[in-house]
Amino acid sequence: MASKERGTLLKEKHVRYIESLDKKQDTLEFWLTEHLRINGVYWGLNALCMLRSKDVFNREDLIKFVLGCYVESTGGFAAFPRHDAHLASTLSGIQLLKMYDAIDSLSKSQIDKCVNFIKSNQMKDGSFQGDRFGEVDTRFVYTAISSLSILERLTPEVVDPAVDFILRCYNFDGGFGLCPGAESHAAQVFTCLGTLAVVNRLQDLTKAQVDEIGWWLCERQVPEGGLNGRPSKLPDVCYSWWVLSSLSLIDRLEWIDFEKLRGFILDCQDEKRGGISDRPDNEVDVFHTVFGIAGLSLMGFEDLVPIDPTYCMTYDITNTIKKYPYN
């Protein structure tokens, strides 16, 4: 069957699925995933934004939840009230406030403390640790730099070493890894290119590097249409975001076969309950739902609200961010 006939995006069902997540608090699993809660809320709201259904979540309740995750003692956001602050949850918290145009619900001193929290996790080599615990990962460079950018508080002292670190993570095969020398991985490619895009430094890559990166990224598409994260691995819907956003940042999006990828993403929908899974016939979750929809949005399908590949939020939101360098 031609992929064009493989159906469409079940928008209404996905909206209902995301709405239902908020009401699943009667399961133990819900509680055992507290450590990802604020990220999950961001994924859900981001999907709703692309589906033009932002109002499904209650703005006031959500802002209250996010402010409840702010850790006064350190200035970062935790994944859940009374957990420790972490850079990953800090970005989600700031993104959620930005999406509701509610950054100013933080006081000036709270924002200052947050900026300090983020900066205090930068290491000598320009990388960032996720929290004081020391896990270093290009992912945290992105979360730190993107957070500072949304708060419009980037400075050369933070940016320049971070860029140096990112460039050191470039690999012989055209990808980027979690740290220098680590295996190339599509999610890490996004965090590296995303960081460079946020600080307007993509031009630090040579033309040859950009071509190699584009090759490595389009090489992720398997004959069935889906994208994998590393060579010789299975395809997974979440790479629709990591790979396509990266290709979009270096202006090579057209190197992917859109129709085939679209077919793969649509095949991963739960046609009864809504939601999207990693591969056809698997259990759906909010993570794969948002990144499947984001992939479709980047390809311009399904009349979705366009998403900004740099910030992973819709353009109507990111257009209001003052871009670095600030003059």
């Binding site: 995933t33 450590h35 990802l36 957990h83 615990f133």
Partner: peptide
Amino acid sequence: PAFYTIWN
């Protein structure tokens, strides 16, 4: 196991 506050 993924509750990092406890690890800290």
